[in-house]
Structures are given as C-alpha cells and as structure tokens.
C-alpha cells in the first residue's frame, strides 16, 4: 500500500545511537539509525527480538534519551546531542499518541473516562473532555461501549478505545507497540484499517513495531532493524 509522500516529515531521525552500559558490558541498542515518516504514512518497524525496535520507539516517544544523533518531531528539533526541551511529558501529551500491545487502559475508568483522561491532562474540563471522548469512540465505532470498563471489553474493543485515547489530543505522531499482537486476524485488520483512516484523515504519521506477518501488507514502508542497525527498508 503506497501513500504519496508529501509535506515535511513528522518524524525525522539522523544518526541516532543508543547504548546501555560501558566498557565490556556496553550494549549498542541503536547504531546510526536514520528514518523519516511523513504525514499520512503508516510505517512498520520489524526485526527479531533484541534488535532495538522498542528502544527506537522509546527514543521517538521521548521516553529514553539517545546517546547521540539528532531528532526532529513535528517540525521541532527535540534532540541534538541532548534534549532540547525540558517538558518532555508535555511534548508527548501534545504531539504523540501511544498505542500498546495490551491496550493499557486504566482498569478503574470506563471507556469514555479512559479517553477523557488524556484530554483532561491537556487542560480540558471534565464535561468537555467526556463529550469529545464520546465523539472519538463513535468515530472508532465503539461508542456503544462508552460506559463499559476495560475488564468487560473484548480485545478488539479495548484496542479501539486505546486508539481513541491515543488520538484524543489530535497528535501528529502515533507510536504503536505491537498493536495487533493480541488480536485475531479479523480484528487486527479492523485496527489497521482504523490506523490507516487516522493517518489519512488527520495527516498523522504512524510508526508501528510489529512481528505480525498478517499485517505487513498494510504498511506504506517497513524498516528492518537488526542488532540496532537499519538493515533495509521495503
């Protein structure tokens, strides 16, 4: 599936490296990685276990500081040998949406509140946040489960609620960690269709780590990582 590349890349990494430990115990998790993800693109990140996929996602999500390199997110240079912004949580709140393998919904909030919590963190009042949350749940075709708690949602429903939460603050960048790993092929297809819809309609860049072969054909580009290095791209 090809989406025409247009506009400035929302994610731009140059020679990003990340190592853990020093000396004999040093492990190079990422070595000179450079990628670009444009608005509207759904990009896959593939590689065997320990190849550095999750580390790369953590770096792009501003969760882990790279050891070296340069990184730009949505037009802002955020890393150039050091973090250039002190409020990384705020940056994540405003610019990045996260989708997890096991949805990670807060078990004590219902579907609406799980989405609304991201909006209240951004400063919306509770009533407005809930109203917007319901809109998002309807958009992701899970509005009928708005009052259900995560424990009673099916895997597919929970993942759609999680996507709604990731989209709540209209982020331009969405990072997904194995978003379909816990779903059967039918539900995995629905989730990928939703991500595609979000990427297209909201001009967002989606970077997804996956092992799930059944969704390989849903990506515009796929980066292969091996031992922390970009092997090739397809």
């Amino acid at each position: 599936m090809d989406t025409p590349i247009s506009g400035t890349p929302l994610v731009r990494l140059r020679t990003i490296s990340k190592h853990f430990g020093e000396g004999d115990s040093r492990v190079d998790a990422l070595v000179d990685v450079g990628i670009e993800v444009h608005p509207g693109q759904v990009v896959g990140l593939l590689g065997p276990s320990g190849s550095g996929k999750t580390t790369l996602l953590n770096v792009v999500g501003c969760i882990q500081e790279p050891s070296a390199g340069w990184m730009e997110l949505d037009g802002d240079v955020v890393y150039d040998g050091r973090w250039l912004r002190s409020d990384l949580r705020r940056l994540r709140l405003e610019k990045i949406g996260f989708i997890f393998q096991f949805h990670n919904l807060l078990p004590f909030l219902d579907a609406t509140e799980n989405v609304a919590v991201a909006l209240t963190l951004a400063g919306l009042d509770t009533a407005e946040a809930k109203s917007r949350a319901v809109e998002l749940l309807e958009y992701l075709e899970v509005g009928h489960r708005r009052n259900a708690f995560p424990a009673v949602l099916s895997g597919g429903e929970a993942q759609r609620v999680a996507i709604a939460r990731a989209l709540a603050n209209r982020p331009r960048i969405i990072l997904a960690d194995e978003p379909t790993a816990a779903l059967d092929s039918q539900r995995a297809a629905i989730v990928m269709d939703l991500l595609r819809k979000v990427a297209t309609e909201q001009r967002a860049a989606i970077l997804a780590v996956t092992h799930d072969e059944k969704i390989f054909d849903r990506f515009d580009r796929i980066f292969h990582l091996r031992d922390g290095r970009l092997d090739d791209q397809t």
């Binding site: 999500g61 969760i63 949580r89 705020r90 994540r92 709140l93 405003e94 996260f98 997890f100 990670n104 807060l106 078990p107 004590f108 919590v117 991201a118 963190l121 951004a122 939460r165």
Partner: peptide, 16 residues
C-alpha cells in the same frame, strides 16, 4: 505500576 507508567507515558505530570 503499569497504570502509573501509562499515565506518565501519555503525559500525566508528577502532581497527578
């Protein structure tokens, strides 16, 4: 722990 990590990840400040 996981809920707290999720809250931090989606941008919740320490005061929350």
């Amino acid at each position: 722990i996981r809920e707290i990590a999720t809250l931090k990840l989606i941008g919740a400040p320490d005061r929350t």
